[in-house]
Design a protein around this nucleic acid. Structure first.
Lengths: 357, 357
DNA sequence: CCATTTTACGGGTACGTGCCCGTAAAATAA
DNA sequence: TTATTTTACGGGCACGTACCCGTAAAATGG
């Protein structure tokens, strides 16, 4: 049994006593300030090392509240009914906020429209005016996001990217899934469940697909699995930028007439429930349906057996962890991991009840 | 946008100023102490309510450190190579410990031998001598555990059960999986993956099986799924209390000769890797193998494709959350949830890398 | 050798809360 | 009425850290 727990109770006072100096001198050493002779500095550092001194977080923050609050900013899509997904990260952010409010942190929220690059740029200028000490956002628009990163680094303010990555671009912190492998895993599930040589439909339903790494990478991962494992099921891509129910339904209808042997549908984003309803209305049964995200609509379809698998990557925790990361970086100058890859969770109608997003 | 964030900065001082009283009087009201006239009490309570005052956690704990540390005790099986599983909850406990050490909490660890009821009882008497303020344990031995619960309640010390439950017995907090549904979910996976009417082997490999709810409930859940869904695959139970590789191998060998149509093996606890090695050595391929827990051995087999699915219930987090629950109960008198059911996670060789236990 | 600057350090206060102690005023007892 | 208890409140210190201010002693300047 170690005694380290006992030692770690020691504070600045104890150090000062052992070094025969005042609290202030110890303080100077701890904060690398001037005004201490080399000799005493060495002595104090030795004692700090020996005692394995760790500053009391509570007292530190308490003392620091006098110095004013730390300001954080978030930039995420506003969550519409259609893209309910973005509520979860915001929930996580709010939870983190509540937790660290006491430490003198304030968070300001900015929202943009997923279908409007302009709105993103507009919010960015607002944020720059606010001059936050830390920043959290999702790089949905690659070009604008790269600019934001560059300017953040120029001003030396820490930033965190969540939910989707900016492949091949150097950044200081990404929190989210490994999107390629997320697609790869989905394919593995399909591989287990599909019977024979049935065809597999890969459904990309989004306003923008061309620049959308979150979708493109996922499809790549999915297809790669089939290639890696010599599975010869036909893989049919289905792209549509018209995301409403009627459009999706009529297009699916055509596809199913064209390809009569479709046994699986994989939806590359959260719009699974729309597909589920289309399949039901088209009278398509015995089709394995899987897709992404723990939205209310999706879960409700999962529960009824209309969806077989949901792949989820804890969006709530992404938001939470993003804020906590900034907090720890700014307050305790803790170094942030470059990438924190979220688990890729498999949800069915029999474990969704226990899932925490 | 609410202004509540601004208000919540107000502290005791502000309340005192508004009520024209001293800090001490406000303090008395907050802690329901005597020595305040009904009139001023009312006035202060009104102001507290209006300001939505919430005490500063940091300052509170800092002030309280003078009053001595809070003592917690844990009682878990010692983790041998054979039952590596129990390292994870302990890791979580240690992580929590590190986090709340600063708040003046000390945790003492007690261990018992999973195969020896006596050792459990012995540790219980030691714990009673220690007189902890809070207790965390796993109720592997039902009778002894019930006694421990009863005595804890008599002395009014909060306790948390983790990992497996004590069905039908009233207790104040359980943190762990819904074991029955965990088995149910495993069966669902089998249902998706199994081809035709192949037989399914349910392997219970443990020193004690009769009283082992963690195993019995799981098997029940598994079988119930097959009944609920009219699946007529033969389900064969395989019980053995000899847990070493050689014994398991020879018994499996006999079984496979007896039943030639076995297509699936479900191991009801963490001893999946042993079975994996047996299957390999017996030259059995194309058998779907699934079981429990994210141990090193299991993961290594998963990686190599010898195991198809691992079902996990975040044992690390169970330990972490258990300690945090006690902490919040004791320090912030936060009421504890009666049951916190952990997610039931599905791990394959393509998402295990991202899993956090 | 004295005046001025620099170095090296100690004293003291603040952060928000918990709690002990002291004490006027009010209530009760003699 | 006076002595004693009770009520209702204020003052002040402590928790561990951060940081401002003041000041002897040492170093430098002329």
């Amino acid at each position: 049994m170690t005694k380290s727990t006992d030692k770690s109770l020691a504070g600045v006072k104890e150090i000062a006593k052992r070094a025969n100096v005042s609290l202030a001198t110890v303080d100077r050493v701890i904060h690398n300030r001037t005004g201490v002779s080399a000799k005493t500095r060495e002595k104090i550092l030795a004692i700090i090392d020996e005692l394995d001194y760790q500053p009391n977080v509570l007292a530190r923050r308490l003392a620091l509240t006098a110095r004013g609050t730390i300001r954080l900013a978030t930039l995420l899509p506003n969550s519409s009914e259609e893209t309910e997904f973005w509520r979860a990260p915001m929930d996580g952010i709010l939870r983190a906020e509540l937790e660290i409010k006491q430490y003198g942190i304030h968070v300001e929220h900015y929202f943009f429209d997923q279908n409007d690059r302009q709105s993103f740029a507009k919010q960015v200028t607002k944020i720059k005016k606010y001059k936050p000490d830390g920043l959290l956002f999702t790089p949905i628009f690659p070009e604008e996001s790269k600019q934001l990163i560059t300017s953040s680094e120029a001003q030396n303010i820490p930033y965190v990217l969540i939910n989707s990555d900016l492949p091949g671009f150097e950044k200081s912190c990404y929190i989210g899934p490994d999107i390629f492998n997320s697609g790869y895993l989905s394919a593995q599930l399909v591989g287990y469940c599909v019977k024979g040589k049935k065809a597999v439909l890969i459904a990309n339903i989004a306003r923008e697909i061309d620049n959308n790494y979150a979708i493109l990478d996922k499809e790549q991962g999915f297809r790669t699995y089939f290639r890696d494992h010599n599975l010869h099921n036909p893989l049919i891509s289905f792209n549509t930028t018209e995301t409403d129910y009627q459009s999706v339904r009529s297009k699916l209808n055509k596809l199913f007439k064209q390809h009569t042997d479709i046994g699986v549908v994989f939806v590359t984003n959260s719009r699974v429930s729309i597909v589920a309803k289309c399949l039901e209305s088209l009278g398509k049964k015995n089709i394995l349906l899987l897709g992404h995200d723990f939205t209310n609509e999706n879960v409700s379809c999962l529960e009824k057996g209309m969806i077989d698998f949901l792949i989820c990557e804890k969006p709530e925790e992404q938001g939470y962890r993003g804020i906590i990361t900034l907090f720890q970086n700014l307050v305790f100058s803790k170094e942030t991991e470059k990438t924190y890859l979220m688990p890729i969770d498999i949800i069915t109608r029999h474990n969704y009840r226990y899932y925490r997003n």
